[in-house]
């Protein structure tokens, strides 16, 4: 049961993004749908997005959180570029997480650059939903 206080909180707005040229969108779409089914407002960019396009969409859509999925191996170039552009646009408060085929040593490096979490294959949708709820501050 939701009480009155909770009802004032708006749903979390999330951008699910597919940077890079690979077409593997199964994971991105499953996560987008799971977050939506969990009551969040989800905007999905579609495939083949450049970092510029992703940051642009994030700003336009006024999201609190970006989830990026990548399976092409270009994560060490494209994720940091998104982080850099967010900073450049004074939007570093947007929380960024990612997922895909990402080797462990790269996970550490990406977290050092400000990506808050990387979900690897085998993650359940519940874990992602829980993580977003816990880590994205509610908006009044």
């Amino acid at each position: 049961m939701t009480d009155k206080k909770e009802m004032k909180v708006s749903p979390i707005r999330v951008l699910i993004a597919k940077p890079g040229l690979d077409g593997h969108d199964r994971g991105a779409k499953v996560i987008a749908r799971a977050l939506r089914d969990a009551g969040m407002e989800v905007i999905y960019t579609g495939l083949h997005q450049t970092p510029e396009m992703i940051v642009q969409s994030a700003l336009q859509e006024d999201v609190q959180c970006i989830g990026m999925s990548i399976l092409s191996g270009a994560h060490m170039v494209l994720f940091p570029e998104v982080m850099r552009l967010l900073k450049e646009n004074d939007a570093s408060d947007i929380i960024v997480f990612g997922g895909g085929i990402i080797p462990k040593p790269d996970v550490v490096k990406l977290k050092d650059q400000g990506v808050q979490e990387i979900f690897l294959p085998g993650t359940s949708t519940r874990e992602v939903i829980e993580w977003v709820r816990t880590n994205v501050p509610a908006r009044e």
Binding site: G20, L21, D22, T50, L71, S72, G73, A74, H75, M76, V77, L78
Partner: peptide
């Protein structure tokens, strides 16, 4: 359909 030297190829060349 992008050559290796295209801007959209950055980070992707030879990876997959």
């Amino acid at each position: 359909g992008y050559d290796a030297d295209h801007s959209k190829s950055r980070g992707e060349v030879g990876r997959e």
